[in-house]
Design a protein around this nucleic acid. Structure first.
Length: 833
RNA sequence: GCCCUGGUGGUGGAAUUGGUAGACACGCAGGACUUAAAAUCCUGUGCUCUCAGGAGCGUGCGGGUUCAAGUCCCGCCCGGGGCACCA
């Protein structure tokens, strides 16, 4: 199955059509058809519609009827689960294209080093925020690691509080704020808007205009990342005043970069007494601070802990914080200046890409430019053939250059954005249930039979992306009765990452004499250069990879240049000299030396973007697929990350050869016999089956492998090997070493596949011990080891143990206070004196 | 800063319910076979001391509970990952 195959993405497009044609109904708490919504609009307007949407204006049925087609289209777009909206993207002018966040670092493209700026762009979005509550609440019932659950929870970031509108002096406008602490409203002594807030321009007074313009320009010039990283306290008053609705006092309105335009309403009521950021701001700009919560009873509580008694707050005085919050919410609603509300950190997700490789949107535009979805019969809408995969340069995708694709016979035009990778990956597990179905994304019977995924193994890097989108899509499909389950993945295991060494070279941010300038890691450190960016490169170019001295020689630099032609004439400087345009100029005292550009090395994930992937094919070619597979399991617990260490794969390789040697000698002669097995042999076999059965259940594959090693070591010590032992052992080992076990299965005379043989059950009766070796401790310190019959009673053991020679010497002159016997485990003698 | 993890020999790791710490492997040392090498096999290998029998210490650090703690409790330290001015 391939998500980029039209027979698959037909159904991805189909689901997108469904998303486009549904909205989220907050009363029914599920997705409902847009057709129903439009009917309601025609009957009674949107007054009674409780939907998750960005439509704010209320209209009546009469108004709806009077709207133009375009107006109706725009209003409905505010409800759709897939909708068109505007947002900022990373724009690289030089490349004429949009870049993803991980292709950008320090405001420049990692591929070409060109500048990247934020630029608004109209794109498609998924209204995932509609499902925020359910995505949070339903985490409860999932058998997922706590780490993933908490990271989804914090990513969604639900917080409860209140929306309050503040009137503005001499203006009919008001400012909407969101606060989790409505109780502290008596302490709200000023307001802060995000510098990008739409009211800033309108409200700024003449006197403040210059200062405000300057500040807004300063903020715009900073990238989002810099703005967050610096955490500087900056801001400027805009000259206007708001009225605190509870104290009726005039409070100044400021703008400041610490208020984010995308969270809440992009404006806050600042309560310096109970928020560190507001406090820091107030102190810096000398704004009034009124203490409103008395926390003397809670000395260890921080400003955000909702404990304490209200003070300086009129009718709230003396109340507990929690009660004050609900009372203020009630009061605010009575006064019609706001309401209790919920906010999320989660944003709707950008669903557009301006790239060739992706599913085309099943969406077209009519002659008026209104969007509509294609009929299911018109799907799949296939990606058109082309040789030109470069983006158009104006920010549009390469598809926009293909007239035959863009222009439809009826004069309509097609959407030219493509979908991101998460589109196809959000539902593929459903297709696995019925991969060849031509009429449906998966047959109803199949889905009802398989339900959802019992065990999903995947990397933790998908914690908040893939795993959240898939849950969202699944819930949507559940809402419209296409899947019976609420969640896609019942149990989740995060396998650790096999890490690799990452090699990078430093590049100065500023060009030198117009040339890109690369520096040796040693020089960067020695000179204390901070104005350089580490650019990851292919580990194949690097000499002494994985060691401290990893570096690029001239050949390596040439390979690097061939790989990144932008840097063909760049300067490569190391302590030995300078390499440029194929010429090496050695530094003073370094004559006859060669370039040795030391690279920056660290351990990190293996990733295409870090160019440090170890090719499994090469490992398989050298050691075989079984050894590779078992080695990965043997490295350690599945959930743990560990660096790729090729040294110990030999141990697993050796084990497989030893296992083989139980069947055939070095000349390929069969060595196993049809003889009956001894109790000892059965004990080894059944002990191994038991251990492996139990360890598979708890996903402890590394200990399974060591159980096999122990079994083989043990069997090798015995004089002969028996078919009756080997046969079940081969089946047990088959999931771990599928190829070798298949061959040995055939060698034992079987005809079918070992992978169809049923997994052996173990027989406890072979595992019964006649005698048990007891460790004997004196005061908790192990002093001796002694065999006792397995059926010895507590009393027998207590009596016998004190008579042992090996124990006697420790007891001389001491009083035995107590003897603790844990049957089949250990004996501890407590003495005193 | 907040959240989640983890810390055990030279190394990767094992110890599932409080009950023999270091299974299994790598590495290292020694030996067998071999003209030699590879491969294979055997022995040893936590640290320190040692009269060679053993003794002491030992699971990041400091306390505690217990006959008994890698495991439970309290307080710290360090590494890895995620989120990060979220009002």
């Amino acid at each position: 199955m391939n998500t980029s195959d039209p027979s698959y993405y037909k159904w991805t497009q189909y689901i997108v059509v469904l998303l486009y044609n549904h909205y989220y109904d907050l009363e029914e708490e599920k997705a409902v058809s847009i057709v129903k919504l439009v009917e309601t609009f025609a009957e009674e307007g949107n007054r009674n519609v409780k939907a998750f949407c960005t439509q704010e204006e209320i209209f009546t049925a009469e108004q709806w009827a009077s709207f133009t087609t375009q107006e109706k289209h725009d209003i409905v777009m505010n409800y759709r689960l897939v909708y068109k909206g505007s947002g900022a993207v990373n724009w690289c002018e030089e490349e004429g294209t949009v870049l993803s966040n991980d292709q950008v670092k320090d405001g420049m493209s990692l591929r070409t080093g060109a500048a990247v700026v934020q630029r608004p762009m109209v794109q498609w979005y998924l209204r995932i925020t509609a499902y925020a509550d359910r995505l949070t609440n339903d985490l409860e019932d999932l058998d997922w690691s706590k780490a993933i659950k908490t990271s989804q929870k914090t990513w969604i970031g639900r917080s409860e509080g209140a929306t309050v509108y503040f009137n503005i002096e001499n203006s009919d406008k008001n400012i909407e704020v969101f606060t989790t602490r409505p109780d502290t409203i008596f302490g709200a002594t000023y307001m802060v808007l995000a510098p990008e807030h739409e009211l800033v321009e309108l409200l700024t007074t003449k006197e403040q205009k210059d200062e405000v313009d300057q500040y807004v320009a300063y903020v715009k010039a900073k990238s989002e990342i810099d703005r967050m990283a610096e955490k500087k306290i900056t801001g400027v008053a805009i000259g206007a005043y708001a009225i605190n609705p509870f104290t009726n006092s005039r409070i100044p309105i400021w703008i400041g970069e610490y208020v984010l335009k995308d969270y809440g309403s992009g404006a806050i009521m600042a309560v310096p007494s109970d928020d560190e950021r507001d406090m820091a701001f107030a102190e810096k700009f000398n704004l009034p601070i009124i203490k409103v919560v008395d926390k003397t009873d809670f000395p260890s509580a921080g400003p955000h802990d909702k404990v304490g008694k209200m003070i300086n707050s009129d009718f709230l005085n003396g109340m507990e914080v929690i009660d004050a919050i609900s009372l203020v919410c009630k009061k605010v609603e009575e006064m019609k200046i706001g309401k209790a509300s919920v906010n999320y950190k989660l944003r709707d997700s950008n669903f557009s890409r301006q790239r060739y490789w992706g599913e085309p949107f099943p969406i077209a535009y009519d002659k008026e430019g209104l969007s509509y979805t294609l009929d299911i019969d018109a799907l799949p809408l296939e990606l058109p053939q082309t040789d030109d995969f470069e983006p158009k340069g104006d920010g549009r995708s390469p598809l926009s250059k293909i007239d035959s694709f863009v222009n439809m016979p009826n004069g309509h035009t097609r959407e030219t954005d493509t979908m991101p990778g998460v589109a196809g990956s959000s539902w593929y597990y459903l297709r696995y249930m019925d991969p060849n179905n031509k009429d449906r994304f998966a047959g109803k019977d199949h889905i009802n039979y398989w339900q959802n995924v019992d065990l999903y193994v995947g990397g933790a890097e998908h914690a908040v992306a893939h795993l959240l989108y898939a849950r969202f899509w699944h819930k949507f499909l559940h809402d419209i009765n296409l899947v019976p389950t609420k969640e896609p993945f019942k149990k989740l295991i995060n396998q650790g990452m096999i890490q690799g060494g990452i090699e990078a070279i430093y590049k100065l941010k500023e060009k030198t004499n117009g040339f890109h300038h690369f520096l040796c890691a040693g020089l960067v450190k020695a000179k204390g250069i901070t104005d350089a960016t580490a650019i990851p490169l292919d580990i194949k170019f690097v000499e002494a990879y994985g060691s401290i001295g990893s570096h690029l020689n001239m050949e390596g630099i040439n390979k690097f240049i061939a790989w990144r032609p932008t840097y063909a004439d760049a300067i490569f400087e190391c302590s030995k000299g300078i390499y440029q345009n194929g010429k090496f100029t050695s530094a003073k005292g370094q004559e006859n030396s060669e370039s040795e550009l030391v690279t920056h090395s660290e351990i990190g994930k293996m990733s295409k973007s870090k160019y440090n992937v170890i090719n499994p094919d090469e490992v398989v070619a050298e050691h075989g697929a079984d050894a590779f597979r078992m080695f990965e399991m043997f490295l350690g617990p599945i959930e743990q990350s560990k660096p790729w260490d090729p040294n110990s794969i030999g141990g697993v390789s050796k084990f497989i050869r030893r296992f083989w040697s139980l069947f055939f000698d070095q000349d390929g002669k069969q060595v196993f016999t049809e003889e009956a097995a001894t109790d000892e042999e059965f004990k080894i076999l059944h002990g191994t089956i038991k251990k492996v059965t139990e360890d598979i259940e708890r996903f402890s594959f590394n200990t399974c492998v060591s159980a096999f090693m122990e079994a083989v070591n043990h069997l090798k010590k015995l004089p002969s090997s028996k078919k009756v032992i080997l046969e079940p052992l081969v089946v047990t080992i088959a999931p771990f070493a599928p190829f070798v076990s298949e061959e040995l299965w055939k060698a034992l005379g079987n005809t079918g596949s070992v992978h169809h043989a049923s997994f052996p059950a173990y027989d406890e009766s072979y595992l019964v011990e006649n005698s048990i070796s007891y460790p004997i401790s004196i005061n908790g310190k192990k002093r001796a080891l002694q065999d006792f019959p397995a059926d010895a009673t507590k009393e027998d053991l207590e009596k016998q143990v004190v008579g042992l020679d090996s124990i006697q010497k420790y007891l001389e002159g001491k009083n035995i206070k107590k003897i603790i016997v844990v049957p089949k485990r250990m004996i501890n003698i407590v003495v005193a004196g």
